[in-house]
Amino acid sequence: MADKTTIHGMVGDFDSPDQLMDAIRAARKAGYTKLEAYTPFPIHGIDDAMGAKPSILGYIVVCCGAVGLTIAILLQWWTGAVAYPLVISGKPMFAFEFAIPIIFELTVLLSAFGAVFGMFALNGLPKLHHPLFNYSGAEGITDDRFVLVIEAGDHQFDAAGTREFLLAQGAAKTELIEE
Protein backbone atom coordinates (compact mmCIF):
# COMPACT_ATOMS: atom_id res chain seq x y z
CA MET A 1 0.00 0.00 0.00
CA ALA A 2 1.45 3.28 -1.11
CA ASP A 3 -0.11 5.45 1.54
CA LYS A 4 0.87 3.20 4.40
CA THR A 5 3.45 5.70 5.65
CA THR A 6 0.84 8.38 6.24
CA ILE A 7 -1.53 6.07 8.05
CA HIS A 8 -1.09 5.58 11.78
CA GLY A 9 -3.45 2.73 12.33
CA MET A 10 -6.96 1.43 12.82
CA VAL A 11 -8.98 2.45 15.83
CA GLY A 12 -11.41 0.11 17.49
CA ASP A 13 -13.60 1.84 20.04
CA PHE A 14 -15.12 -0.35 22.78
CA ASP A 15 -17.81 0.19 25.39
CA SER A 16 -16.28 -1.56 28.37
CA PRO A 17 -12.91 -2.55 29.76
CA ASP A 18 -13.80 -6.22 29.47
CA GLN A 19 -14.53 -5.96 25.78
CA LEU A 20 -11.23 -4.20 25.30
CA MET A 21 -9.36 -6.85 27.23
CA ASP A 22 -10.98 -9.60 25.17
CA ALA A 23 -10.15 -7.73 21.97
CA ILE A 24 -6.51 -7.38 23.01
CA ARG A 25 -6.24 -11.06 23.75
CA ALA A 26 -7.90 -11.92 20.45
CA ALA A 27 -5.67 -9.54 18.51
CA ARG A 28 -2.55 -11.07 20.00
CA LYS A 29 -3.87 -14.51 19.24
CA ALA A 30 -4.54 -13.43 15.69
CA GLY A 31 -0.89 -12.47 15.37
CA TYR A 32 -1.04 -8.70 15.68
CA THR A 33 1.99 -7.31 17.49
CA LYS A 34 1.86 -3.52 17.17
CA LEU A 35 -1.02 -2.69 19.47
CA GLU A 36 -1.74 0.15 21.78
CA ALA A 37 -4.70 0.47 24.11
CA TYR A 38 -6.07 3.78 25.36
CA THR A 39 -8.23 3.88 28.47
CA PRO A 40 -9.65 6.40 30.96
CA PHE A 41 -8.08 4.61 33.90
CA PRO A 42 -5.50 1.88 34.39
CA ILE A 43 -6.95 -1.59 33.87
CA HIS A 44 -5.73 -4.40 36.02
CA GLY A 45 -3.99 -7.07 33.99
CA ILE A 46 -3.80 -5.14 30.73
CA ASP A 47 0.00 -5.29 30.64
CA ASP A 48 -0.07 -9.07 30.81
CA ALA A 49 -2.69 -9.19 28.09
CA MET A 50 -0.62 -6.96 25.85
CA GLY A 51 2.58 -8.77 26.71
CA ALA A 52 4.19 -5.52 27.87
CA LYS A 53 7.43 -5.63 29.79
CA PRO A 54 7.36 -4.27 33.36
CA SER A 55 8.29 -0.63 33.76
CA ILE A 56 11.97 0.11 34.28
CA LEU A 57 11.15 3.20 36.33
CA GLY A 58 12.25 1.50 39.57
CA TYR A 59 15.85 1.31 38.42
CA ILE A 60 15.86 4.99 37.45
CA VAL A 61 14.55 5.90 40.88
CA VAL A 62 17.14 3.79 42.67
CA CYS A 63 19.93 5.51 40.71
CA CYS A 64 18.55 8.97 41.46
CA GLY A 65 18.18 8.07 45.12
CA ALA A 66 21.79 6.91 45.25
CA VAL A 67 22.89 10.22 43.75
CA GLY A 68 20.86 12.11 46.38
CA LEU A 69 22.37 10.02 49.15
CA THR A 70 25.89 10.69 47.90
CA ILE A 71 25.30 14.41 47.50
CA ALA A 72 23.88 14.67 51.01
CA ILE A 73 26.83 12.89 52.60
CA LEU A 74 29.41 14.82 50.62
CA LEU A 75 27.66 18.14 51.22
CA GLN A 76 27.52 17.71 54.97
CA TRP A 77 30.97 16.25 55.30
CA TRP A 78 32.64 18.78 53.04
CA THR A 79 30.94 21.88 54.40
CA GLY A 80 31.09 20.79 58.03
CA ALA A 81 34.45 19.10 58.27
CA VAL A 82 36.49 20.59 55.42
CA ALA A 83 35.36 23.93 54.07
CA TYR A 84 33.92 25.46 57.18
CA PRO A 85 34.80 23.52 60.32
CA LEU A 86 33.26 25.12 63.37
CA VAL A 87 32.86 23.66 66.84
CA ILE A 88 29.17 23.74 67.73
CA SER A 89 28.16 22.66 71.23
CA GLY A 90 30.87 20.04 71.29
CA LYS A 91 29.46 18.07 68.40
CA PRO A 92 31.89 16.38 66.02
CA MET A 93 32.52 18.12 62.71
CA PHE A 94 30.80 15.24 60.96
CA ALA A 95 28.91 12.34 62.47
CA PHE A 96 26.26 10.06 61.10
CA GLU A 97 23.82 10.89 63.89
CA PHE A 98 23.02 14.40 62.82
CA ALA A 99 23.70 13.72 59.15
CA ILE A 100 20.80 11.27 58.85
CA PRO A 101 17.91 13.74 58.46
CA ILE A 102 19.42 15.54 55.49
CA ILE A 103 20.70 12.30 53.98
CA PHE A 104 17.17 11.01 54.14
CA GLU A 105 15.55 14.15 52.75
CA LEU A 106 17.88 14.51 49.78
CA THR A 107 17.60 10.81 48.95
CA VAL A 108 13.84 11.10 48.89
CA LEU A 109 13.88 14.36 46.95
CA LEU A 110 16.07 13.04 44.17
CA SER A 111 14.22 9.74 44.07
CA ALA A 112 10.97 11.64 43.65
CA PHE A 113 12.48 13.68 40.84
CA GLY A 114 13.56 10.41 39.27
CA ALA A 115 10.07 8.96 39.61
CA VAL A 116 8.22 11.96 38.16
CA PHE A 117 10.57 13.09 35.43
CA GLY A 118 11.55 9.51 34.69
CA MET A 119 7.88 8.67 34.19
CA PHE A 120 7.39 11.63 31.86
CA ALA A 121 10.52 10.68 29.94
CA LEU A 122 9.52 7.04 29.57
CA ASN A 123 6.09 8.14 28.40
CA GLY A 124 7.60 10.64 25.96
CA LEU A 125 5.72 13.53 27.54
CA PRO A 126 5.19 16.32 26.79
CA LYS A 127 3.84 15.23 23.42
CA LEU A 128 1.28 17.73 22.32
CA HIS A 129 0.96 16.44 18.78
CA HIS A 130 0.10 12.79 18.35
CA PRO A 131 -1.66 10.80 15.63
CA LEU A 132 -4.24 9.60 18.15
CA PHE A 133 -5.62 13.12 18.37
CA ASN A 134 -6.65 12.74 14.72
CA TYR A 135 -9.24 10.19 15.82
CA SER A 136 -12.64 11.85 15.80
CA GLY A 137 -13.67 10.19 19.07
CA ALA A 138 -10.44 10.77 20.97
CA GLU A 139 -12.28 12.88 23.56
CA GLY A 140 -14.03 9.78 24.81
CA ILE A 141 -10.80 8.12 25.91
CA THR A 142 -10.53 10.32 28.97
CA ASP A 143 -14.19 9.78 29.72
CA ASP A 144 -15.63 6.29 29.24
CA ARG A 145 -14.33 4.86 25.97
CA PHE A 146 -11.86 2.01 25.68
CA VAL A 147 -9.83 2.18 22.51
CA LEU A 148 -7.56 -0.30 20.80
CA VAL A 149 -5.33 0.89 17.98
CA ILE A 150 -3.72 -1.61 15.68
CA GLU A 151 -0.87 0.31 14.15
CA ALA A 152 -0.08 0.46 10.47
CA GLY A 153 3.46 -0.69 11.12
CA ASP A 154 2.15 -4.14 12.01
CA HIS A 155 3.11 -6.64 9.32
CA GLN A 156 -0.43 -8.03 9.39
CA PHE A 157 -2.03 -4.63 9.03
CA ASP A 158 -4.48 -4.25 6.25
CA ALA A 159 -7.05 -1.49 6.54
CA ALA A 160 -10.08 -3.49 5.51
CA GLY A 161 -9.11 -6.72 7.22
CA THR A 162 -8.14 -5.08 10.46
CA ARG A 163 -11.41 -3.14 10.51
CA GLU A 164 -13.29 -6.40 10.04
CA PHE A 165 -11.32 -7.96 12.84
CA LEU A 166 -12.05 -5.11 15.28
CA LEU A 167 -15.74 -5.08 14.41
CA ALA A 168 -15.82 -8.80 14.99
CA GLN A 169 -14.49 -8.20 18.50
CA GLY A 170 -17.44 -5.96 19.22
CA ALA A 171 -15.98 -2.53 18.54
CA ALA A 172 -18.73 0.06 18.59
CA LYS A 173 -16.86 2.15 16.05
CA THR A 174 -13.76 1.88 13.91
CA GLU A 175 -11.76 4.55 12.17
CA LEU A 176 -8.61 4.78 10.13
CA ILE A 177 -6.39 7.50 11.54
CA GLU A 178 -3.59 9.32 9.79
CA GLU A 179 -0.10 9.98 10.92
Binding site: P126, L128, H129, F133, N134, Y135, S136, G137, A138
Partner: peptide, 13 residues
Protein backbone atom coordinates in the same frame (compact mmCIF):
# COMPACT_ATOMS: atom_id res chain seq x y z
CA UNK B 1 -10.84 15.74 18.01
CA UNK B 2 -8.52 17.70 15.81
CA UNK B 3 -4.86 18.29 16.46
CA UNK B 4 -4.40 21.37 18.61
CA UNK B 5 -0.77 21.87 17.82
CA UNK B 6 1.42 21.48 14.73
CA UNK B 7 3.73 18.54 14.49
CA UNK B 8 6.90 20.50 15.18
CA UNK B 9 5.62 21.70 18.58
CA UNK B 10 7.20 18.83 20.52
CA UNK B 11 10.62 19.45 19.05
CA UNK B 12 10.25 23.14 19.85
CA UNK B 13 9.32 22.45 23.47
Amino acid sequence: MAQLFPKKIDLMI
